[in-house]
Design a protein around this nucleic acid. Structure first.
Lengths: 181, 181
DNA sequence: ACCCTATCCTAGAGCCTCTAGGCAATGGGT
DNA sequence: ACCCATTGCCTAGAGGCTCTAGGATAGGGT
């Protein structure tokens, strides 16, 4: 019974019942032990949730890195974005966890995401000074899309997958013809 | 003591202590009555939160509509986006409430947001078939940006306001030179 | 006067968080 | 072999949030 296994179980629980329902009680129930017993392993419920957040961000970065491997330009953009969206769809609870306010514990994982996104830009020709803005644009759009999709914000007006492909087309064109400041 | 005043108080509470801390108990405390007394006014805590969500989406749509009035093209885009971001910064708790999964009660407010976003497109020349994709791109980017900013995701790498302006520049250029499918 | 409804109350059950303190097994050092 | 510290779990219990059931009260309409 390591803290690691515990966090993994919490992540699985999150995907099953939603991150907001990840409680110490529910986890204890799943392990067949008393609530109080958990507090030897974990400081408190808050910390448990942060660890799940950190796990999610790390997994997501791993998969994004994988998607990027050996690709560049448009291929890299699409593969990265799809890794992002696929992860959110496969692991909704984990993904939601990743949206917790950035804590010291998750700051390094968050930095990795920025660096990976920045790697995409190497396939386009943007001035160095524009990189930070482009990274934020991509991050925002990917995250915004998957969270609105997940919340049902796109439910009543046409094919969500088609829009996603089109949005990636448009972002590719935008990076390829990045307007001068 | 109408349901409306109650929801308004809940929204204020959300902005002060965070949406996740809006509880029936906290609200009752603020009104100086017992928890149980609230259940004559409100079905349950879930409904209270949904009403706050609906209030937030409606207020946000009102302000976005105001920002759009009399503007078109790039002006409209920037004013709309700023209305969005300003609202999120001024009313963090309400904004967070607006991200609840779309319920039947909030579906009409959500539709209004789509229509307002669509109004921006009238200042650009996009084929009708592209509108749904462009609306989703804009929504995603605005929402993604303000929520990542709020969560602290942009904390460690430069001026967030400058990036915001630049992102809007880029979106303007993207809408102006929308790539063919 | 009488009733009715709105508003609030107490009591209490159920779930979640977390602290304090205890007990038993395990396994390493002597 | 023996001791003892650590580990992992336990019970007990306090306190907060949610919600139901049922009761008091007071003002307004008939």
């Amino acid at each position: 019974m390591t803290a690691e296994r515990l966090v993994l179980a919490a992540a699985e629980l999150a995907d099953e019942v939603g991150f907001e329902n990840v409680t110490v009680s529910a986890l204890a129930r799943r392990f067949g032990i008393r609530d109080a017993s958990f507090y030897s392993h974990i400081r408190n419920a808050q910390e448990l949730r942060e660890q799940v957040s950190r796990l999610a961000l790390t997994e997501l970065a791993d998969q994004a890195a994988n998607a990027l491997a050996g690709r560049s330009g448009r291929d890299a953009l699409v593969a990265f974005a799809n890794a992002y969206r696929d992860y959110a769809r496969r692991h909704p609870g984990r993904y939601a966890a990743g949206q917790l306010p950035v804590s010291p514990a998750t700051a390094d994982a968050a930095r990795r995401h920025s660096e990976l996104t920045r790697a995409i830009l190497r396939g386009y020709e943007l001035p160095e000074a524009e990189h930070v803005h482009a990274v934020r644009l991509l991050h925002s759009t990917f995250h915004g899309y998957v969270s609105l999709e997940r919340a049902g914000g796109f439910d009543h007006s046409g094919d969500v997958a088609a829009s996603w492909r089109r949005v990636l087309d448009v972002l590719d064109a935008t990076l390829a013809h990045w307007p001068a400041p």
